[in-house]
């Protein structure tokens, strides 16, 4: 791992300033993607700006939405009694990320900013119709995630919170890779307050995406059987040593059904 300058600002404005000053800076949240990336030499930034000093954690349940501060760890999201009642699928998703030690470090802000194609949170953001709050603006999840490891974030922009609208039902099911525990396929389903359904898939493609056919079927009737006969085409899906594109396509329908059946 190449060496770098390290700063740990206490205020978000100072973090933005530090990034503007850096030649090739990187923000670090929990570090569980960034540090392995640095070890492998896939990135060698001149400056690491550690966002851990911001201490922006917490979950607020409002009348119509839940706001989770960007620095909230997966463990904190998974353990929140209030969130388990408000959006059970989201709390369950957080409880299934990585393993207990990873969940103590990884944060929601880090996960959505990194937009790993196999990360869990982007599917929840997209299916729940979340709004990503940043230092500059508020962005709909549909506009935020732009492809493999890429988002609409500018280089000096930091995610400050994620706002999830309250929904009738939510559920998540994933088929994790047994070694890395990342999703080979993960599907988040949500039945909105108005009854319309949204379905978002992670792990299967180059980035998180929605499945219009499934959403239409579940909007008519929110039940696992509504998905019978709905297949996702394998064209464009990931194919690697862990699973072929055809296998991932098959898993999408299986996981979507499980997610609907688990939805509360």
């Amino acid at each position: 791992m190449e060496n770098f300058n390290y700063v740990r600002p206490a205020k978000v404005a100072d973090a933005v300033k530090a990034m503007k000053k850096a030649k090739d800076g990187k923000f670090m949240a929990g570090g569980h993607t960034l540090i392995p990336t640095l070890k492998q030499g896939l990135a060698s930034p001149t400056d690491i700006i550690d966002l851990g000093g911001l201490k922006n954690t917490g979950i607020k349940i409002g009348a119509k939405s839940v706001v989770i501060q960007a620095g909230t760890t997966h463990a904190e999201v998974a353990a929140s009694k209030e969130l388990k009642k408000a959006i059970p699928g989201l709390a369950a998703l957080a409880g299934g990320i990585g393993d207990p030690h990873v969940r103590h470090k990884g944060t929601i802000g880090g996960s959505v900013s990194n937009n790993d194609p196999a990360a869990d949170y982007p599917s929840a953001c997209l299916a729940l119709g979340a709004t990503i709050h940043t230092t500059d603006r508020k962005l709909a999840a549909d506009k935020f995630f732009t492809g493999m490891f890429s988002t609409a974030l500018k280089d000096t922009e930091i995610v400050t919170a994620v706002e999830f609208p309250l929904v009738k039902k939510s559920g998540y099911a994933k088929f994790p890779n047994p070694a890395s525990l990342y999703a080979m396929v993960g599907v988040f389903v949500a039945q909105g307050a108005d009854g319309s359904a949204r379905v978002a898939v992670t792990g299967a493609g180059p980035g998180v995406f929605r499945v219009a056919d499934m959403e239409a079927a579940l909007s008519r009737k929110f039940a696992g059987s509504s998905l019978d006969g709905i297949a996702v085409k394998s064209k464009g899906l990931n194919s690697d040593m862990h699973a072929s594109a055809e296998y991932r396509a098959h898993l999408i329908t299986v996981m979507a059904k499980r997610a609907v059946e688990a939805a509360k």
Partner: peptide, 13 residues
């Protein structure tokens, strides 16, 4: 007080 993987944490953090 929390279990973490020390191979994936910077000492300075």
């Amino acid at each position: 007080g929390k279990a973490v993987k020390s191979c994936t944490a910077l000492a300075i953090s």
